[in-house]
């Protein structure tokens, strides 16, 4: 049965390739919503950007959001594959094992997942790509900025659970601070949830009570913490998307993950008949990570001279990361 569907999918893909005018069709599985101001939104924005660039007649995508139940996500992935989509993006590290089951049944459909460096070629699977944002690089840069911005010498971070990108970002953040100013005290707390806005907010308040004047964090529940930072007039450093629209005078910098840097080469490879096996890193070096500084927030915290100094040091840090002079290890 599965083989039959796989065959149908294959025919569909071949038809796509033969009729050059046919659009490239992408299906994406998102664990949260397209407007979460974090992980899922960053992917949605990348797909919108690609569509804008290639034109709607050449690039189309559909999405399933809130796919936090893994079994449902797996069913959705299989269904999209059977419908003959060219590329299926399983946007979450929790979806990897499902791909191992599904991908072999659809050898001419391409799959991509992350954050990871596993493409399962060792299992004889050749149609899975992986993308790997180097969150620790982003964390490091935000750490440098935090160390330059703090006046109290106390900085806090708020994460969901201590794994994956959140863990890497936190490790980079702490190292960035220590390398810039070893006297600054930094603590990172994990609230055990991606959705508990109240606890994220309370963690932020507790940090402020303890004297922190710069906070950072990853995942969608941090909107609660950003709101506290805004209320208390302290600084927030964001990740995933540009979070400054949430609090223009509070969010001094955001590390933006630009998934197009991974997706565009993947699309090109698929068009050339390569369906997987590559790991696509997202780094400052290849533009997969971007720093967005928000002058409106910086001007409230630093003098013009200090801002120039900060920017100089931040660009220098970026240069060193790109050149490999700074290497961030995560244990």
């Amino acid at each position: 049965m599965m083989r039959k569907i796989g065959f149908v999918a294959l025919v569909l893909v071949m038809v796509d390739l033969i009729s050059l005018g046919a659009p490239f069709r992408v299906a994406v599985i998102l664990p949260s919503t397209i407007n979460d101001f974090a992980w899922s939104q960053s992917m949605y924005e990348a797909l919108m950007a690609i569509q804008e660039e290639m034109g709607e007649e050449n690039f189309q995508f559909v999405y399933s959001e809130n796919m936090y139940v893994i079994a449902d996500a797996a069913a959705a992935i299989r269904d999209y594959a059977a419908q003959g989509y060219d590329l299926i993006i399983a946007h979450g590290s929790q979806y990897g094992s499902s791909l191992v089951d599904i991908a072999p049944d659809f050898p001419k459909t391409s799959f991509v997942w992350g954050s990871t460096a596993q493409t399962f070629t060792e299992l004889g699977i050749h149609n899975i790509f992986a993308y790997a944002p180097h969150a620790e690089e982003g964390g490091y840069v935000n750490g440098v900025i935090a160390a330059l911005l703090t006046k109290t010498g106390i900085i806090g971070g708020i994460g969901p659970i201590k794994t994956g990108d959140a863990k890497r970002y936190a490790a980079g953040f702490e190292k960035g601070i220590k390398d810039t100013n070893p006297d600054v005290q930094v603590n990172y707390t994990f609230i055990g949830s991606y959705s508990d806005v109240a606890l994220a907010s309370e963690a932020a308040r507790t940090f402020v009570n303890a004297g922190a004047d710069v906070l950072t964090g990853t995942a969608q529940m941090t909107v609660g913490a950003i709101s506290v930072a805004k209320e208390k007039g302290i600084t927030w450093l964001g990740y995933d998307v540009d979070q400054s629209p949430l609090a223009p005078k509070t969010v001094a910098a955001s590390i933006v993950v630009d998934w197009t840097v991974a997706l565009k080469p993947i699309i090109a490879m698929i068009r050339e008949g390569k369906y997987g096996g590559e790991i696509l890193p997202l780094t400052f070096a290849n533009g997969g990570l971007k720093l967005v500084l928000n002058d409106a927030a910086l001007e409230g915290k630093l003098s013009p001279a200090e801002i120039i100094e900060l920017k100089a040091l931040v660009w220098e840090t970026l240069r060193k990361i790109v050149s490999g002079e700074i290497i961030i290890e995560v244990e």
Partner: peptide
């Protein structure tokens, strides 16, 4: 699933 995993909640 053939393995155990978590997305932070039991729901996943």
């Amino acid at each position: 699933h053939h393995r155990m995993f978590t997305d932070g909640t039991a729901f996943g």
